[in-house]
Simulated scan of single mutants.
Amino acid sequence: MKFGLYGLHRDRNVAPDVLARRAALAEQSGFESLWVGDHIALPPGEGNPPRLEALIALTYLAAVTSRIRLGVGLIVLPQRQPVLLAKQLTSLDVLSGGRLTVAVGAGYVEPELHAMGVALSERGARTDEYLAAMHALWTAEPAFTGRFASYAGVVQHPSPVQSPHPPILVGGHSRAAYRRAARTANGWYGWGLDPDETAQAQRTLAEATRTEQRPAALGELEITLTPTGLPDLDTARRYADTGVDRLIIELEGVPDDRVDDLITTIGETLIGRL
């Protein structure tokens, strides 16, 4: 099993020296990947800590690391302009030497979507269309026509290091998200599920894969999950037994003075033991 670390884009980690130090520590401790989330503007109140913009944070992480993979998840796809986003993700993949993984979702925070000019009712349709538009750009198709995004007579260079594009994961627990993952993605990203709930999600994904007639070129769905809290070795084994390929450990709620010790502890007690 692979282990990722989520959360170096927010709270105290927004300080450049802290971000760089903890990224290096995670790389040294054997983590497979570093993950940042994507919110651009959230309603005021508690539970809204300082956070860096996801793609800028990943660009910085690419510069201060050399081996560890870099993931954005979930990027709220309908509130991004897909032609620009395709270029940004390609640039990240090139500058990181092909270390990028992209997890996308449809979003759920209505004030944030509204602030970015997106109606909540359109988020699913935009997500599907933007994925198709980006794939067209990554495969050098010079035109794309859709309801929300269109272009003609343009291509993008360079191409991503990973061909034809960085791995794409689809996140979410709705039937639409499962179908989207089965139809278009390299993997699925779940959040906050225990092992039994994860097993049920796997069964629903398998059903969606059959219904959507998943393209053979995509291969098997890679399963990524962020559990609640820090799993011990036995719990991590239960996730592995359900077919989870990657566990991403979240830093939210961990006191700042314990984060470095937590990174080291995960390296010593979980990584390499499954």
Results as ranks from 00 to 15, higher is better:
Pro43Ser: 08
Pro44Glu: 04
Gly45Ala: 04
Glu46Asn: 11
Gly47Ser: 11
Gly47Thr: 13
Pro49Thr: 11
Glu53Gly: 06
Ala54His: 06
Leu55Met: 14
Leu58Trp: 06
Thr59Leu: 15
Thr59Asn: 15
Tyr60Gln: 13
Leu61Thr: 00
Leu61Arg: 00
Ala62Lys: 04
Ala62Ser: 11
Ala63Met: 12
Thr65Gly: 03
Thr65Lys: 09
Arg67Asp: 11
Leu70Arg: 05
Leu70Ile: 02
Leu70Phe: 11
Val72Thr: 13
Gly73Pro: 06
Gly73His: 05
Gly73Arg: 07
Ile75Ser: 12
Ile75Val: 15
Val76Thr: 12
Leu77His: 11
Leu77Trp: 14
Gln79Pro: 01
Arg80Lys: 10
Gln81Cys: 10
Val83Ala: 10
Val83Tyr: 08
Leu84His: 10
Leu84Gln: 13
Leu85Trp: 02
Leu89Cys: 09
Leu89Val: 07
Leu89Gln: 03
Ser91Asp: 07
Leu92Met: 07
Asp93Gln: 05
Val94Pro: 01
Val94Gln: 02
Ser96Thr: 03
Arg99Thr: 00
Arg99Ile: 04
Leu100Val: 02
Thr101Leu: 14
Thr101Arg: 12
Val102Ala: 02
Ala103Glu: 10
Ala103Ile: 13
Gly105Glu: 04
Gly105Asp: 08
Gly105Cys: 07
Gly107Tyr: 01
Gly107Phe: 05
Gly107Gln: 04
Tyr108His: 14
Val109Asn: 08
Val109Pro: 04
Glu110Ser: 13
Pro111Ala: 01
Glu112Arg: 06
Glu112Thr: 02
Leu113Ala: 04
His114Phe: 10
His114Cys: 08
His114Asn: 10
His114Ser: 13
Ala115Asp: 04
Met116Asp: 07
Ala119Gly: 12
Ala119Leu: 14
Ser121His: 11
Ser121Val: 09
Arg123Thr: 10
Arg126Ile: 07
Asp128Phe: 08
Glu129Asp: 01
Leu131Val: 04
Ala132Asp: 06
Ala133Phe: 01
Met134Tyr: 00
Ala136Cys: 06
Ala136Met: 03
Leu137Asn: 07
Trp138Glu: 01
Ala140Gly: 13
Ala140His: 11
Glu141Gln: 03
Ala143Trp: 09
Ala143Met: 05
Thr145Met: 14
Arg147His: 11
Arg147Phe: 08
Arg147Tyr: 10
Arg147Met: 13
Phe148Ser: 02
Phe148Arg: 00
Ala149Phe: 08
Ala149Asp: 05
Ser150Asn: 12
Tyr151Gln: 03
Tyr151Ala: 05
Tyr151His: 03
Ala152Cys: 10
Gly153Trp: 04
Gly153Met: 02
Val154Thr: 13
Val154Met: 14
Val154Lys: 15
Gln156Phe: 13
Gln156Pro: 09
Gln156Thr: 12
His157Gly: 15
Pro158Phe: 15
Ser159Lys: 12
Pro160Thr: 03
Val161Asn: 03
Val161Phe: 04
Val161Glu: 02
